[in-house]
Design a protein around this nucleic acid. Structure first.
Lengths: 110, 110
DNA sequence: AATAATTGACGTATTTTTACGTCAAAATTA
DNA sequence: TAATTTTGACGTAAAAATACGTCAATTATT
């Protein structure tokens, strides 16, 4: 990670791809689902729900945090994670725009 | 890739994650966009639109094909690619279900 | 104060992704 | 028929993702 690097791709595509990528692992989808169902919870609780070790789960939590899809706040020894609702909404909107932008008429040549 | 491997994750999450992953690269989003705008087109034409070499683009096309998001039909020497509209619709539906499933109430603890 | 619990940082091995060059096959064109 | 075009297969190097063990710091508990 350094000084911006002349963009190969359009900013919007880049951002959307980044978000999709963050969703591109079942563990991360499951984490989002679980966090939403509990509204918020601790690392340990999340780990118990997943078929992965704690440090791996922590790594996935970091991925989600990097993508701004979740937030965490320290509470004593524990860390309380929760879904970043506004970012989820933003992602939904961007996704919708993208799919709508594909003026997908069924192709007859293929 | 071998003999099915006892599932670590839920099938639905697995499938959705796979689709999101396929969208998790700007080149692939751009390809989908371009294919949709032209309705269908050849490998060469796609390559000209992207800041990547032909073989790399071809690899991305294969990723998209593997995810069933595009189809290709050989036409002489050329191959005609187009968006798989029904799979895109399916992805939209799965995505919507997933996001709706996150009964996202703004968290007050974070 | 001593011990236990919880977490993130760090290191690391393995696998996957990404990007591209080379090559051969098939179809077009000259 | 010979040369050209177009493509996918294959190999490969570099980077990133994935999974996990160990460790130290911080907070709770006893």
């Amino acid at each position: 990670m350094a000084e911006a690097k002349f963009q190969l791709f359009d900013d919007d595509l880049q951002e959307l791809a980044q978000l999709f990528k963050a969703l591109g692992h079942p563990a991360r989808l499951q984490i989002l689902k679980f966090l939403a169902s509990k509204n918020a919870c601790f690392t340990g609780d999340i780990t118990e729900e997943l078929p992965l070790g704690r440090t791996t789960v922590n790594q996935h939590l970091n991925e989600l945090k990097k993508a701004n899809l979740i937030q965490g706040s320290v509470q004593g020894v524990k860390t309380n994670y929760c879904v970043n609702v506004s970012e989820i909404r933003k992602l939904e909107a961007l996704g919708k725009d993208f799919f709508d932008g594909l003026n997908t008429i069924e192709c007859t040549d293929c």
